[in-house]
Nucleic acid binder design. Structure first.
Lengths: 214, 214, 214, 214
DNA sequence: TATGAATGAGTTTTCATTCAT
DNA sequence: CATGAATGAAAACTCATTCAT
């Protein structure tokens, strides 16, 4: 798999920035921007403090890189899921939920979300970027899909954006729970099950044939 | 000599702590713990930096007081709503939702939540306290009410805790949205409408007479 | 004993300054000038912090008053002992030693000495005052008495100032020991016995009829 | 651009701690612990304030290091003198006195003693350490040597510890005099002469063949 | 490139001193 | 006279950033 010629030892240079960003990600997520110390980041990345400055101009730059890096990869996965939706809405939704659970489980979105939330006033561009490039696209795609399904008569009428929020919010709560309360002794949430139950609940609640609630 | 009034300082032993905590609440919510400067808090409270130390031993103490103070008042309101539940579950739920919307709208829970989330690793006791005294009671009461309604046949079967999370999570998203994205240019969410629509969706989704989903 | 008309309660005003100086004496001796807090002194004196400023302009002033006060009373006692010396030198010396032991035992000279030593560079006037009004008079009188006794043939020849120092230094060591090491667990020195043994040793060592030493 | 030389800072990991301790020794001895400013110490050591914290955690730590450092070197010299005592007691004593005078003259014991005395209540561990590792060993060794000489009939009977105190106390007075009164205008004591005269006086006073004093 | 000792501006904290009551 | 809340200047301490090596 690895292109030949790549020496196992001394695999420096190219990887350095990523290693640093990865270490920074951990420390920033744990402490927040201001309380994170470059000393700690450097130590966790296994480099000297001075080395950080070979790759990033300032602490803020490094922070931006961390947030930025958390942004890119997931976008594609999510977009894809919604774009290539063929078939009935419920199937689409279940497929999407599976992907979202995967992201929540495998990636540090939780930590990133925590940071974006916590530092939104100190780094407004980052909050803005996250909303424009992550939140709105996702919410928009979801709303669009919902609106389309409503138009096809698959879902009952109602504001699609609110419906989308109803749909995704437990995922947010899930990752926040993991970041906030689990490290402090709380029982972890069973995110896959939670997501699945919620999706079914949501689908029933949005079924068009149903009469008025209550 | 002094041209009347404008004393160099006022003495207001009784009111001061609250004023300081209120100012600190704003600044901490805006900047986070580490980035908040006591200078700013003092200025916003209209006192000297030294005065802070007449009422709080350290910056951390002040922070704790802020979080603590955000804890107390809401507890009662929420508990009350669920305890004095008479009548069918839907009514209880709508009443509860109204109260929750009120809290989300009138109080700085949003800012507090942001801080609890962001500083949970730096102040684990606070995260713990919030979970034990705010989150778990609320989630527990809600789960209990749901379980009771399920037992009475008013709601369909399923894990009541997950159902409770499905129910409350949009409120969390709502306050976080307000704290995180609105200051950065996002359209505010219409929390009352969102909450109401979600409650109705949830109730339909939990209706026992419905057939299997999808 | 008390002149009639002195009410037992409300015996304020006149005594205040002394009470404050006494409290300050304790705190300064314990902590040193810089580390002593006016809060503590006020508390120990049983007055408010502001009240200190009714009697002393600054912390330094209060300190000066403390040192000054430790100066005055003992001077007289010592001087007197040496001036009214009638009879042979040994008797004079024993009488003087008894008085010195009394001062060392009954008064806070130890604490004062500690402070004068420790703050001599920060308050040179005080060190100077102590030398000029306490140390030099005492040493001078002693040297004078020794010189006179030497002239009379009662003591062997030699620099009388050095002899005086040889004579009094164990007293200094005694009070310093009490201030420094006893609070930290050391066995107290038996100052009276030490003084008496030392005086006898000194007298033997200064006896004129003795042959060359060793 | 830089006109050769004059680098903004030097790197001297190895030497720095000693330089700092030396500078701190001076400033602490001059001002006392509380009144000494780290700014001054840093300036005198030729480093920035921050550099102090590369080597010492707190101001207290630095102070401890200063006291500790004053402790170590002298111990050996003193012990050695007493241990290798061969020959009659007077010779031993004169040799010891010479060493003690050397220490008093060449080293900053005076300043250290001043600090130990002045800060004994604020740093009890230091006072304790000094007593246990400096004062008691010295006094103990001296008492032991005296007791041995008494047993051999070289010295007259009497409490050897008191005799030891009688013997060494002028040295204490000498260093304190230098630290306290000389900087304030007093004539320096001629410590070597004082010590020598005192030793002879003491030897005569302890001679066994003498009759009762007076 | 990489290091890490050194810097210095910035922040928390202390406390003598003031002053409205 | 007396109080003690409030001030503000000063001092300890932190840490992002620089730079000689």
């Amino acid at each position: 798999m690895l292109p030949a010629g790549r020496p196992k030892f001394k695999r420096r240079k190219a990887e350095r920035p990523e290693e640093i960003v990865a270490a920074a990600m951990e420390v920033f997520a744990e402490k927040g921007f201001a309380a994170a110390r470059l000393d700690d980041i450097a130590a966790r990345a296994g480099v000297s403090k001075g080395a950080l400055y070979l790759y990033f101009e300032t602490k803020e730059d490094l922070f931006r890189a961390v947030i930025e890096q958390g942004l890119a990869p997931n976008l594609g996965r999510m977009q894809a899921a919604l774009v290539e939706h063929r078939g009935a809405f419920p199937e689409l939704l279940r497929a999407f939920a599976a992907i979202a659970v995967g992201i929540a489980t495998d990636t540090p979105v939780g930590g990133i979300a925590k940071m974006v939330i916590g530092e939104s006033r100190n780094f407004p561009e980052l909050a803005r970027a996250w909303r424009e490039r992550m939140v709105e696209p996702a919410l928009g795609a979801m709303s669009g899909a919902i609106a389309a399904a409503q138009a096809r008569g698959e879902l009952r009428a109602g504001d699609p954006r609110h419906a989308a929020i109803s749909l995704v919010s437990p995922m947010l709560l899930g990752v926040i729970w993991r970041e906030t309360f689990v490290p402090v002794g709380a029982e972890p949430l069973d995110i896959p099950t939670l997501a699945q139950q919620h999706v079914e609940l949501w689908l029933r609640g949005m079924r068009p044939d149903a009469g008025a609630a209550a």
